[in-house]
């Protein structure tokens, strides 16, 4: 399978910059699988899990608190508002993130905030540390 460059950048640092075969992004209108040669597009992302696949197995998983993906045929960049590497995150930080999402859901006043809080909660609960 052809590979492309995938970059995940948060305001504080670059989390990943490596080759991948298949990346799954949490698009605002549904999940989005990106392969080499994808049609160029700019997609808003909801809070969720970004997965990288290499040789059929998962090579990296990240939780992001929403952001934007710039997809091009041979490179894809995700600008995340906040990102956690699930594979080496401490339990403490993860629990904090979870309670933050729960708090946001309880406080959500409009539909948008509710949607975003619900998706982050769903994503975090789907993770098995």
């Amino acid at each position: 399978m052809n590979k492309f460059t995938f970059e995940l950048v948060s305001p504080e640092r670059v989390l990943v910059s490596e080759c991948s075969e298949h990346v799954i992004l949490p698009g605002i209108a549904g999940e989005l699988g990106v392969l080499y040669g994808h049609l160029p597009c700019v997609v808003m992302l909801k809070p969720g899990i970004v997965s990288m696949l290499l040789g059929g197995s998962i090579s990296g998983r990240f939780y992001i608190r929403g952001g934007l993906a710039d997809v091009r045929p041979n490179d894809t960049t995700v600008l995340a508002e906040y990102a956690l590497n699930i594979q080496n995150v401490s339990k403490e930080i993860f629990t904090k993130e979870l309670s933050l999402a729960e708090h946001a859901l309880a406080k959500a006043s409009d539909e948008e905030a509710y949607f975003s809080a619900q998706s982050s909660l769903d994503a975090l609960r789907s993770v098995n540390l």
Partner: peptide, 27 residues
Amino acid sequence: ELLCDFEPSEGEILDFLLNRNIATQLL
């Protein structure tokens, strides 16, 4: 320049990015 798809609309993304941009520049 490649033709690009936008999801949701171009305007919404631009709005989002401009808001972000202020925070990014401040940071």
